[in-house]
């Protein structure tokens, strides 16, 4: 595998977007950065700019207002890109699924690569999701050889 392709696996920069979460999953996501979990070991950096991001982590339910922003952020990311839906709300809409102002999970708006269940999702699970996503990306990259 060439250096450039290997680099794509070894340097996932994440952008975290809170669609409409109760902040439980957000706290768990940010906990990944702390010394206890230290995701920077995998070369992961938390970035605030879709133009620099490789992985989009979305927490919370999608509603008509933030669906536009979610779609726009996804479009502004460079390809290849991964999307990880975190928590019950992000995966399916959770307990808010039937609410009149809720569209549902993230996959109603953009394609999702990895789902992380839990309410809130555990940091270990989120890290595992990133690794799973990178495995998927690796498969794609190797396939495109």
């Amino acid at each position: 595998m060439s250096f450039l392709k290997k680099s794509q696996i070894k340097s996932p920069w994440l952008m975290h977007f809170d669609c409409g979460s109760c902040n439980g999953c957000d706290i768990e996501t940010l906990a990944c950065l702390t010394p206890v979990y230290d995701v920077e070991r995998f070369g992961i950096i938390n970035v605030g700019n879709p133009r620099h991001a490789d992985v989009l982590i979305v927490t919370g339910t999608v509603n008509p207002r933030n669906a536009v922003v979610l779609k726009n952020l996804y479009d502004q990311m460079p390809t290849p890109k991964l999307v990880i839906a975190v928590g019950a709300c992000g995966c399916t809409g959770g307990v808010f699924r039937e609410a009149p102002n809720v569209l549902g999970g993230v996959d109603k708006v953009i394609p999702v690569d990895v789902y992380v269940p839990g309410c809130p999702a555990k940091p270990e699970a989120i890290m595992d999701a990133v690794v799973t996503g990178l495995g998927k990306l690796k498969g794609i990259l190797e396939g495109s050889k």
Binding site: K5, K6, Q8, K10, S11, P35, D38, R41
Partner: peptide, 27 residues
């Protein structure tokens, strides 16, 4: 920096991976 914050930190060559990754992005 990572060690100063009691973290493990990335591999020493991480900046090169970052640049390599950015090189192969399409935007």
């Amino acid at each position: 920096t990572a060690r100063l914050q009691s973290r493990m930190g990335p591999p020493l060559l991480q900046p090169f991976y970052d640049v390599g990754k950015l090189m192969s992005k399409v935007i």
